[in-house]
């Protein structure tokens, strides 16, 4: 019996996809494996151990990395929170306030941080802080991070808000809710998955940033990426692989959370009118 040819299939596309996944994951997996290498050489395999993780937490450079990690997490939490609030307000303006002057211009402005090359943003921000005589440090990093976190927070929040019909707010107002109550009691709870998603993405993006941070961090202030970069300049050492693996775990945890937050929203949105 001749099988009907499946026009969706092209020979070799599966192989390319698997190659693609291999290329994406191989380096990360290798580094994760070598982070458990007992040998002080990064080349030779000396058996499994946790010594480099111990080194990260209690070794010579532990203090430096701990301080960098605290900086990174503080900045990411503050930048992501601020960006999420701003992005939620902006999404409400763009998607719930009808037409107003500057609305289409605002789309361009919000997505500007995505369009300007990072190195250009870095240079511009450094020059700006220098020109106004602003002392670079934690605060300058935070401000720069808020700027590029806004579009990342905005996208999932706006996507979610677009999926919520305004008839719910109208129903709330019809039932004597003020506009603020309609926002707080109806729109905000319905948007939660998008907001969580937006916050988590902004958090990761902030945690990730190297180029802009490196420009505006000022002397003596390090975040994890700048500390790692500084260390790698003298060659890759096993403790860097341990830190990398830890950071990798944090990122993957956050993305997975964000993914499930989005899924949760989808399930809620689909409204099966099942027979009961």
């Amino acid at each position: 019996m001749a099988r009907k040819p499946d026009l969706r299939r092209f020979p070799g596309f599966l192989a390319v996809t698997l190659l693609c996944l291999f290329l994406l994951y191989a380096p990360l997996v290798i580094v994760a494996i070598y982070s458990f290498n007992d040998s002080p050489s990064i080349t030779l395999w000396g058996g499994v151990s946790l010594r480099w993780y111990e080194d990260v937490f209690w070794g010579l450079e532990a203090d430096k990395f701990k301080r960098a990690a605290i900086n990174s997490l503080t900045i990411a939490a503050a930048a992501a929170t601020t960006a999420t609030v701003i992005a939620t307000m902006a999404a409400t303006a763009m998607l719930r306030a009808g037409q107003f002057r500057g609305r289409s211009f605002s789309f361009g402005l919000i997505s500007l941080p995505l369009m300007v090359p990072e190195i250009v943003t870095a240079v511009a921000t450094l020059i700006f802080f220098s020109a106004i005589g602003f002392q670079t440090g934690i605060l300058s990093i935070l401000i720069a991070h808020i700027v590029f976190c806004i579009p990342f927070a905005y996208l999932p929040i706006a996507a979610r808000m677009e999926g919520i019909e305004d008839v719910y707010e109208q129903a709330a107002q019809d039932l004597y809710a003020t506009k603020w109550q309609a926002f707080r009691l109806i729109l905000l709870p319905l948007m939660t998955p998008g907001i969580v998603s937006g916050f988590l993405l902004a958090f990761i993006i902030s945690l990730d940033d190297f180029i802009i941070t490196n420009f505006v961090k000022g002397a003596g202030v390090e975040t994890l990426p700048t500390a790692i970069f500084g260390a790698v300049k003298q060659g890759i050492k096993p403790n860097i692989m341990a830190i990398s693996t830890l950071l990798l775990m944090v990122s993957i945890t956050f993305v997975t959370l964000s993914y499930f937050a989005g899924r949760m929203g989808q399930n809620r949105k689909s409204n099966p009118t099942g027979e009961t």
Binding site: A87, L95, R96, A97, P113, T121, V147, D166, L187
Partner: peptide, 25 residues
């Protein structure tokens, strides 16, 4: 366009404008 918060648009978009305007543009 949904208009629940019609009239509040400029006020709500203002923080994004200020932050991106002052610290990027």
């Amino acid at each position: 366009a949904a208009r629940t918060y019609a009239g509040r648009g400029p006020l709500l978009i203002l923080p994004a404008w200020v932050i991106i305007g002052i610290f990027l543009v």
